[in-house]
């Protein structure tokens, strides 16, 4: 079983039971997600909820960090 989701605009297939925390550690293995923020389906998901939030079929995740700008 797997779920199809969108991460930063790209289609991904994740094993069933994947959480936001597992997605973050996959995408940003260094620093335990330090400096990363996540929006799930258009709303900010606080870090404290990453571990307990499952990524469901069709979910859209945005993972952002600070870059040079302004």
């Amino acid at each position: 079983m797997s779920v199809r989701v969108t991460i930063n605009g790209e289609a991904h297939e994740l094993p069933a039971g994947a959480t936001v925390a597992s997605v973050v550690s996959e995408m940003a293995p260094a620093g335990e997600g330090r400096g990363v923020a996540v929006a799930l389906d258009g709303a900010v998901l606080p870090r404290a909820q990453w571990q307990s939030t499952a990524v469901d079929e069709g979910a859209s995740l945005e993972l952002v960090v600070a870059v040079q700008g302004g």
Binding site: M27, A28, V36, A37, E62, V65
Partner: peptide
Amino acid sequence: TVAMRRLDPQARGSIIDVINEAGVEVL
């Protein structure tokens, strides 16, 4: 100042480390 953009797993080094090392606050 810094901008917020999608995480790039290939990116090398974090701008936040550069700013922290300089002892500057981030906006």
